[in-house]
Amino acid sequence: MFEARLVQGNLLKKVVDAVKDLVTDANFDCSSSGFTLQAMDNSHVSLVSLSLRSDGFEHFRCDRNMSMGMSLGNLAKILKCAGNDDIVTMKAADDGDTVTFMFESPKEDRVSDFELKLMDIDSEHLGIPDTDYAATVTLPAAEYQRICRDLSSIGDTVVISATKDGVKFSSSGDVGTANITVRQNTTADKKEEQVSIDLKEPVALTFALRYLNSFAKATPLASHVSLSMARDLPVMVDYQISDMGHLRFYLAPKIED
């Protein structure tokens, strides 16, 4: 039996909305430690890793580890039926082929339940090693979203280079070129405007903007996002979900053919 009650039900909606364009079907894995998902996009160059710890739920019960395959499009359709302030409870039997989502309004005057059919999904689980990243920049999530969107109107790829002067995002295309540099700013008046840069050594990598833009759909989940880069390795784009876990994206860098 799996049962998880999430008071901040819209968090689940935000998570699914953030990943559904990248991944169409995915297995949600439940264990006593929490609710996780790992999935690659169709072309296997990017990966989504969600972790929601059991202690972040108001109630969490998982008697047996289980993997629930869901169509994220269909899941998004169901979660769209939840009110923004609704409490969401997920329930599934150990050997069932459905998962039930129950939505309760905060005033307890409306309760609804939706049953989603589970699917068998073959998925490979990747082990992501702990990495000593050369550079990590933590910037407002909205700023990251804006940089990716602005550069997309110039080119298809972005070179992200971290040096002691800051982190520069550069793109070029038929229109011309663009450079956007963010610098450390840990004294900004508002905490949500702060930028911090942890640089061990300079690093520069090239990425497809299409994917970085897609990751920015997670913007409503967190005030800040961290980009961690190491030479010749996938970038990690990390949104921390307060008191619960994280939604991370990994993207392989572009390399010379």
Binding site: H44, S46, G127, P129, T157, L233, P234, Y250, K254
Partner: peptide, 14 residues
């Protein structure tokens, strides 16, 4: 032209 490697070339399958 540049390309991207499959993520499986960076991370192990478990």
């Amino acid at each position: 032209a540049d390309k991207q490697r499959n993520l499986k070339e960076y991370f192990n399958t478990v």
